[in-house]
Simulated scan of single mutants.
Amino acid sequence: MPIPEDVTGEEIDKDVRQELQSLPKTLAEDVAKNLVMVARLIDEDPEGAYGYSRVALRLASRVAAVREAAGFAAYASQKYGEALAEFRAARRMTGGVELWPVMADCERGLGRPEKALDMAGAPEVQKLDKAGQVEMRLVAAGARRDMGQLDAAIVTLQSPELASNSVQPWTARLRYAYADALLEAGRKNEAREWFAKAVEADRDGSTDASDRLAELDGVEFVDAMDEDEAEASSASVEVDDDEVDDEDGDEDGDDDRDRG
């Protein structure tokens, strides 16, 4: 797959670059460039990112960072079985637990929420950092909702992290998930309160909490471009009506001349 000229491979994280040092220099550079493309495309073009991840995987399947990148690209493309296999491979190579929550979410994607809940209660969760534990809580709550256990999902999300007033990288998503579960349970007023709290914490726009809040408040947004198109369409209709009137007038005139 083509690599843009502005991609050098130096953009990757230093830890990943260090992993690639086990490869011949030219090969390491090629792998690095493909990993940069994965990171660049994964949010806006998951399928494109997946394609680059497969190239990197063919070049260096024995590098844990490559297996992890391939896993995230497959996950973003909703290829959950493939993602889970790559995450498991990366975990075997590193012995770490950081991928445990996303592995559990892959189980959800494969229609196995019970397996995700089993993973949420496994000893590995205690080895996760705070961010990982919050992520695991979100996955567990999602699994509960998958199983129709809405009240249990709400209880799962109730935690010191949810109650805290301090804003952490996970705060907006945690509040959003809680608000969404409350809304599904018919607790609209509470849901509105928590969507508002999610908006306060969502400094980088990682959720659509502001839109959900506006929807609850009955606010409708009109796209400026849509408005312009509507006005242009209206003007076009008016012009067409005028043309029809002119044509009618001309036909009447012709009839008068013929009768004369």
Rank of each mutant, 00 (worst) to 15 (best):
P2Y: 09
I3G: 05
E5I: 01
V7H: 00
E11W: 00
D13E: 11
Q18D: 09
Q21L: 10
Q21P: 00
L23D: 12
L27G: 05
E29K: 09
D30R: 02
K33G: 04
K33M: 10
A39D: 11
R40P: 11
D43C: 06
P46V: 14
E47D: 07
Y50I: 03
R54C: 11
V55W: 00
A56G: 03
L59F: 04
V66N: 11
R67G: 04
A73S: 11
A73Q: 08
A73I: 05
A74N: 07
Q78K: 15
Q78T: 12
Y80P: 06
A85T: 14
R88Q: 13
A89F: 00
A90E: 04
R92E: 13
T94Q: 02
T94F: 00
V97R: 01
L99D: 02
P101D: 07
V102G: 05
M103I: 03
E107Q: 15
P113K: 13
K115F: 13
M119F: 15
G121A: 07
P123K: 07
E124K: 12
E124I: 11
V125F: 07
L128K: 04
L128P: 10
A131Y: 11
V134I: 14
E135K: 15
R137F: 05
V139N: 00
A140L: 14
A141W: 02
R145C: 03
D146E: 13
M147V: 05
G148Y: 02
G148W: 01
L150K: 02
D151K: 04
V155C: 03
V155K: 05
T156L: 05
Q158C: 09
P160K: 02
L162V: 06
L162T: 13
A163I: 10
S166G: 12
Q168I: 07
T171E: 09
A172F: 03
R173M: 13
L174I: 10
Y176H: 12
Y176S: 08
D180M: 00
A181E: 07
E184R: 08
G186M: 03
R187W: 08
A191F: 09
R192A: 04
E193A: 10
K197P: 15
A198W: 01
V199E: 00
R203Y: 14
D204A: 14
T207I: 09
T207G: 03
D208E: 05
D208C: 01
D211H: 12
R212D: 06
A214M: 01
V219M: 05
E220N: 06
F221K: 15
A224M: 10
A224T: 15
E227M: 09
E227W: 07
A230E: 04
A230V: 02
S234D: 15
A235F: 01
D241C: 06
D242L: 15
V244N: 14
D246W: 05
D248T: 12
D248F: 11
E251Y: 11
E251I: 13
G253T: 05
D256E: 14
D256N: 10
R257G: 15
D258W: 03
R259W: 15
R259P: 08
G260C: 06
